[in-house]
């Protein structure tokens, strides 16, 4: 079992309002691997993540999670195994941090209150929020919110975590703390698929970079290769543009 990929995405297609956003995307994610997906906006990166846990069901293709096809039947238990971190955090406004991290453990995994609390505390400690258990989302900074939402995903003991532009809604000075947590996760062996242009994370923690454009994967490879000697002209153009942007901001 351990040599089969934990996630296998096969030929995913998705059309929105007559426009084909994903035109047959396939890739594998090995256990403990972290891959980062980069590419111009509107190229279907976020849609791809939502197709994986059927938040936005693909029109065609298949997703296999640890040997099991992800389908509507039993979807809630499958989703519980796939962590999802949103750009906008999406913490539950009416619940304190601790309850945000406990709710799905209790409701979906059926854990006892005691067990859910224990796991929540572990993960909140890991992301550095042990002193914010009783705080409500509106009382947290953006970086704290995102770290709480990462803890919420981790406490479910997922097989992998999908990150949808986790730092894009943050002020530049707050991205560091979130990237730091993500690096630590990757180094600790968490399987991660990250849509982000956070080059710091890509270079330090990603095993592979996937460059997507126009609904297809243009090329993929380890960051050392892809960033220095990309095969396709489009990839190098995009990378140049990214570096340029980063220098400006």
């Amino acid at each position: 079992m351990s040599d089969t990929p934990i996630l296998s995405v096969r030929n995913i297609r998705k059309t929105y309002g007559g426009i084909e956003v994903l035109k047959g995307v396939s890739f594998d994610l090995e256990r403990g691997q972290s891959k980062i997906v980069i590419g111009p906006s509107g190229t279907g990166k976020s849609t791809l993540l939502r197709c994986i846990n059927l938040l936005s069901p693909p029109d065609d293709g298949s997703v296999i999670l640890d040997g099991v096809t992800v389908e509507q039947k039993g979807i809630n238990q499958l989703r519980a195994q796939i962590g999802f971190v949103f750009q906008e955090f999406n913490l539950f406004t009416h619940l304190c941090v601790l309850d945000n991290v406990r709710l799905a453990q209790r409701n979906v995994l059926g854990r006892s209150r005691h067990e859910a609390t224990r796991r929540a505390m572990e993960e909140l400690e890991r992301v550095g929020l042990a002193d914010k258990l009783d705080a409500y989302p509106a009382e947290l900074s953006g970086g704290q919110k995102q770290r709480a939402s990462i803890a919420r995903a981790l406490a479910m003991d997922p097989k992998l975590i999908l990150f949808d532009e986790p730092t894009s809604a943050l002020d530049p000075e707050l991205t560091g703390e979130v990237v730091q947590v993500m690096k630590e996760l990757a180094n600790a062996g968490m399987t991660m698929l990250v849509v982000s242009h956070e080059m710091g994370f890509a270079k330090a923690a990603a095993d592979e970079v996937i460059f997507m454009e126009g609904g297809v994967i243009v090329e993929q490879g380890p960051p050392s290769t892809l960033f220095t000697q990309p095969e396709h002209a489009r990839t190098s153009q995009f990378l140049q543009m990214l570096t340029h942007e980063h220098h400006e901001t």
Partner: peptide
């Protein structure tokens, strides 16, 4: 977004309505 987050965590439609 909160509804989507609840569904992504595995909460059913009904549980999402009730808890979120």
């Amino acid at each position: 977004g909160e509804v989507m987050a609840a569904r992504a965590l595995g909460l059913s439609r009904l549980a999402t309505i009730r808890h979120i």
